[in-house]
Amino acid sequence: MKNTAGLVLAAGGGTRFGRPKALIEFDGRSLLDRAVATLHTGGCRQVLAVLGAGAEQALAAATEAFTPVLNRRWGQGLSTSLKAGLAAVPERYDGVVVTLVDQPRIAPEAVRRIIAAAEEGAAIAVAVYAGRRGHPMYFAREHLDAIAAGAVGDRGARDFLAANAALVREVECPGDPVDVDTPADLEALTRLPRINPQSSPPKLVGRS
């Protein structure tokens, strides 16, 4: 079985929302707690969370166990959080599952399916929802440095994935990777039915 860590990118200031996204509450829990719990429940043995804006408040309010990683350059884009997070993954892990703090409808089953793809040999595994790629994503240890080197501004692993298409395994997943960017987005989520985590085996939809 793969020895897999989880990584939540949660450093953003949430300018459009009005406060850091790690502090936003949805359905009685902070987005940070929900993201950390999703990775734990999905099978990650240790979860790291990159914090930046509102880091002290996020740490004080958190109820889920995670290893904090401070990104003081969070204002320079998502790439700085990805770089900080990947660099902090302990050497004992074979790879890491990465997700974003502002997507509370990602299901633990999606994490399970991504890890299952890694256990079947995928070096890079990416969740797919109705034909569109999203999070979570799995990155094998041997590619972490290259992924970090290719991350610039608000572009995370996108350029690496495009340049290494033969490595990428797409995995059909349940859930919904919708972002919470504004208060209106959050209000819209409260009117949606709860996500069914599903327990069926992963369906691999090929490489691209």
Rank of each mutant, 00 (worst) to 15 (best):
57 Q>W: 02
34 R>F: 05
43 G>W: 00
20 P>C: 12
63 T>S: 13
36 V>W: 00
62 A>L: 02
53 A>L: 01
18 G>R: 14
84 A>R: 13
100 L>M: 12
45 R>F: 00
40 H>E: 13
66 F>I: 10
23 L>C: 09
102 D>C: 08
50 V>Q: 12
81 S>P: 08
87 A>L: 07
29 R>G: 02
22 A>E: 00
32 L>K: 06
25 E>V: 01
31 L>H: 06
16 R>T: 07
46 Q>N: 11
103 Q>M: 15
78 L>R: 14
44 C>M: 07
53 A>R: 03
67 T>C: 04
30 S>R: 15
98 V>F: 01
60 A>S: 12
79 S>H: 06
34 R>K: 12
101 V>Q: 10
92 R>N: 07
38 T>D: 03
67 T>I: 05
19 R>G: 06
91 E>F: 09
39 L>S: 08
101 V>R: 11
85 G>A: 03
53 A>M: 01
68 P>I: 06
58 A>C: 06
104 P>E: 02
92 R>M: 13
35 A>K: 11
44 C>G: 10
60 A>D: 03
103 Q>E: 10
67 T>S: 13
86 L>Q: 07
71 N>L: 01
48 L>G: 10
76 Q>A: 07
22 A>N: 04
26 F>K: 00
95 G>H: 04
97 V>E: 00
109 E>V: 05
